[in-house]
Design a protein around this nucleic acid. Structure first.
Length: 643
DNA sequence: AAGCTCTGCTTTTTT
DNA sequence: AGCAGAGCTT
């Protein structure tokens, strides 16, 4: 198979990357070739976490491990895809045999393969928006009982957080929230009602994917054996972002397979999702026989950039024990540039981008990092106006656009007449039908055991003009195995309705053509729906292909694991770092520091920090006291400041 | 009683 | 841009 000159097994010295070959250093090689059972590789930003995880897989496969027996778990879909691409670069098509994906993806896949073993029959995966919609429905019932309740989105957050940390909801509320006892109980009741409704509809929300999987494996020893025996090696990326629920899944999977985890506690920025860097700190306590290896050298950035990042972490009360050392040399000092408004800021950035482009650097060498999707709106408008090609990553996805959701909901309603959420939304699209009528029709449909009978039954209850309502799902059913056709037909049917409902219709309609194009890749609508629920494609990234020469506009959270020669951090203002909503909560504020740290350490050669400190940002707190701000006491020698 | 429309308010991060 | 709630129309 693979030729080996020496008798020794092949060892990995070099790994191919998009930008060329990378030689592993001694420590990295040690990690990659680790023979004993479980290992945790702790590495600072840019120290080659991804590189070593790829190298590990390559090494294993070259030394005879069947690629099928490697499970590679990542945190985001993007990371999974990148890993597979990089693996392919090194070992070719064998890479496709590796099971790679997010925790959610892996759990869903396995449960779809053997639903009965997990106590499931047909089920629909619902995303966060659906979850909120369903909570809204039950929340409405409880609101009548005349006491206050948090909003649906807040309820979803509380519930999700409690589950991801394996905590009961009441216990969680007592510990981490300000709600009094009565409200807490009220909240619990709403959640119980939500769970019941969810069961009746055969829905699984994102957390169910993990929880159901983990629980079943724990209970059913035969099942645990069956699944855990499929893998010899489990590679886990971004270990610091795993939460207790995910850890419990790893516990079930990890024997006899060996664990190889990489992480960095200074980059833990998903606490809001229950991420717990105890999974990193307590690794050795949980698995006493394990090894921990630290990688110190930074291969990404130049030292001036790291000096600033190091300074930021040193300001923290937490000792991260992470002084990043650049291998690449001193480099250019980061720039800090002040503007009067976000308009001036956006204008300057677009000008700077053009200047760089015209002097020969491609668009794709530039990344713009934003704390929130919303905060980059001004800049986005400027990018469009000044004809700078860009893609947006993070924030809103294509599926979240109202009109796309409407179309999806039609397809889902055709999939099952028990899908309450889909039917409510679909029916209320039509004139003269509000939630009351919709609820009536849905209860009529519930009685029937096939969708065809259900459709017939509601047709009887509709006026002549309203017969079109049933035509929608009927058409979709007809084209079930031809997703592109089904979507085209649905779009045609909905257009008269939707064009009235939404302005800028022409722009929105383009998304439908995009969907048709995407749907062509799928053989049936089932797969299409699943994929889109779990991996929502963002509008901008769907429109542009991966390697196109475009500027990347990205939320810091999505940017983890990526890099670019030139990085702009925009709106680095008081109220943004730390973000206003985190102010007052010590842990949350500290997480904000790590977010800024992640942002800074994305830059390879140049880091440009921009901000506009106007009246708005200075009056964030009533009484005029200044909010905490990470760059408040920035030593002037660390950056080159401009006005 | 059900549906519709207008207005003002808020706007994190992701699977 | 989307949501909740008030008030208006059918």
């Amino acid at each position: 198979m693979k030729k080996n000159n020496s008798k020794k097994k092949s060892s990995v010295q070099e790994i191919k990357t998009i930008s060329g070959k990378r030689r592993l250093n001694k420590k990295q090689r040690k990690a990659v070739k680790y023979k004993e059972k479980d290992i945790l590789v702790l590495a600072g930003a840019g120290a080659g976490k991804t590189l070593t995880i790829i190298a590990r897989a390559v090494y294993l496969i070259r030394n005879g491990v069947d690629a099928k027996r490697i499970l590679l778990l990542t945190f985001t879909r993007r990371a999974a895809k990148e890993m597979v691409d990089r693996l392919t670069l090194n070992i070719g098509d064998n890479a496709k045999k590796v099971t790679a994906g997010t925790f959610h993806h892996f759990c869903l896949r396995t449960m779809r393969q053997m639903p009965k073993r997990f106590g499931l029959k047909g089920f629909t995966v619902i995303d966060r928006d659906d979850q909120i919609d369903l909570i809204k429905l039950v929340r409405g019932d409880y609101l009548k009982k005349k006491s206050k309740l948090p909003r649906a989105a807040e309820l979803a957050n509380l519930y999700s957080y409690a589950r991801n940390t394996n905590t009961g909801i009441l216990k969680y509320l007592k510990k981490f929230s300000e709600y009094d006892k009565a409200t807490s109980k009220h909240i619990r009741n709403v959640i119980k009602a939500y769970e019941k409704r969810k069961r009746n509809n055969h829905y699984l929300d994102f957390d169910d994917l993990l929880q159901r999987f983990g629980k079943r494996l724990k209970k059913d020893k035969t099942l645990r054996k069956r699944i855990s025996r499929l893998y010899d090696h489990i590679l886990v990326d971004e270990m610091q972002d795993t939460n207790p629920l995910q850890w419990s899944i790893l516990e079930e999977l990890r024997n006899p397979a060996k664990l190889y985890c990489v992480g960095d506690d200074a980059q833990s920025i998903y606490a809001f999702r229950g991420a717990d860097f105890e999974n990193v700190h307590s690794f050795k306590d949980r698995i006493p026989a394990s090894a921990i290896l630290r990688l110190k050298y930074n291969y990404r950035s130049t030292q001036r950039i790291l000096d600033l990042a190091n300074w930021l972490l040193e300001q923290s009360p937490i000792d991260y024990d992470k002084r990043l050392k650049a291998v690449r040399g001193v480099g250019i000092k980061p720039k800090l540039i002040d503007f009067n408004s976000d308009f001036d800021e956006a204008e300057w950035i677009t000008q700077d981008l053009w200047k760089r482009y015209e002097s020969g650097s491609p668009w794709k060498d530039h990344m713009i990092l934003t704390r929130t999707a919303w905060a980059s709106r001004t800049l986005e408008a400027f990018l469009i106006e000044r004809d700078i090609p860009y893609k947006f990553i993070g924030g809103f996805s294509l599926l979240q656009a109202a009109h796309v959701k409407d179309l999806f909901i039609l397809i889902r309603s055709a999939a099952s007449h028990h899908d309450e959420l889909a039917w409510i939304r679909y029916l209320t699209l039509w004139p003269k039908i509000g939630d009351v009528t919709a609820a009536k029709l849905i209860s009529i449909m519930k009685e029937k055991n096939t969708i065809k009978k259900a459709l017939k039954e509601i047709a009887v209850n509709l006026t002549r003009e309203q017969q079109k309502i049933v035509a929608g799902p009927k058409t979709v059913i007809k084209y079930w195995d031809k997703p592109a056709k089904a979507i085209r037909a649905s779009a045609r049917l909905l257009t008269p309705l939707l064009s009235q409902r939404y302005d800028k219709w022409k722009q929105r309609q383009k998304d439908f053509q995009l969907l048709v194009k995407l749907a062509k890749r799928y053989r049936s609508l089932n797969k299409f729906i699943d994929t889109f629920t779990l991996d929502p494609i963002t509008t901008a990234s769907a429109k542009r292909m991966e390697d196109e020469d475009v500027v990347t506009l990205i939320t810091v959270h999505s940017a983890k694991g990526t890099e670019a020669p030139v990085c702009y951090l925009i709106r680095v203002e008081p109220g943004m770092y730390p973000y206003v909503r985190s102010i007052g909560d010590e842990d949350a504020e500290e997480e904000e520091r790590r977010i800024l740290y992640v942002a800074m350490t994305r830059a390879k050669d140049e880091l440009l920090i921009t901000r506009s400190c106007n009246e708005n940002t200075n009056t964030l707190r009533p009484g005029g006291s200044r909010p905490p701000y990470f760059l408040a006491d920035l030593p002037s020698n660390l950056v080159k400041q401009k006005y």
